[in-house]
Design a protein around this nucleic acid. Structure first.
Lengths: 130, 130
DNA sequence: CGGAATCCCGCTGGATACTG
DNA sequence: CAGTATCCAGCGGGATTCCG
């Protein structure tokens, strides 16, 4: 039986697990969002993100380079300068990422309220006798 | 046309970190993608995802319930039946998530190729005589 | 069947120090 | 400035067991 509109739940699962190994990493997403504007140098990225250790920055950038998401350009100057830029692939990822960010901005407050309410209800107990 | 002042770099970062605490969890995304089709019961979800421990399923579902992303309906039958369904909020998240999944489907092979190429270059590079 | 509690291992990822 | 190497704490998350 052909499923035109619902092409397989478990199929989507596999696909999602793949993409999650990418975007599941918070630093990956951060870096992509930072570089989507313009290319930046190592410490520039580090400062902009603020809160990332240089080890994680190195690791993540290397992974992104490996995936072909960012390009790494070394300028053989006296103090070595390395510039990172999003590739076309990287930019293409930035789009759905931005959609996710937009969703977050639109619903984070609502979620926060939900959590508060949920916690209140559970704290004060279901209150059987009222 | 984007915002002229582009104030959103570090601003986006904060937003992203928020959303990442949600979707950064692979199981959260999985469950949402599974429930986007139709409501399901506990073990139904577990079987469909396949590979999730019941502990993580319980945890994640509770978190999603707390966030107001899924509704939890207990049917007081003899063997207790609990049905989980996406709320409107949950469905709204599913959309950007699906966009991400679509991106993955479109680019995963490309990424895989990039990785292979990258690894080849790095492997053989240092010293081929060994 | 749905869920809670316990145990425990492995990886993530931060801090630090060293190199080119 | 850019990058590597080491150490190590935290917790994510799996397996198992028990309860309603």
């Amino acid at each position: 039986m052909d499923m035109p509109t619902s092409p397989g739940v478990s199929d989507n699962c596999r696909r999602m697990s793949s993409v999650l190994s990418l975007v599941g990493d918070k630093w990956t997403v951060m870096i992509v969002m930072v570089l989507v504007e313009r290319p930046r140098r190592f410490n520039d990225i580090k400062r902009t993100i603020g809160g990332i250790s240089q080890q994680m920055l190195t690791r993540t950038l290397k992974a992104l380079d490996r995936d072909g998401m960012v390009s790494r350009t070394v300028h053989p100057t006296v103090p070595p300068q390395v510039e990172y830029a999003l590739t076309g692939l990287g930019h293409s990822l930035a789009e759905p990422l931005r959609a996710l960010g937009a969703w977050a901005g639109a619903h984070l407050e609502e979620i926060d309220g939900n959590r508060l309410r949920y916690d209140l209800v559970r704290r004060v107990a279901p209150d059987a006798g009222r």
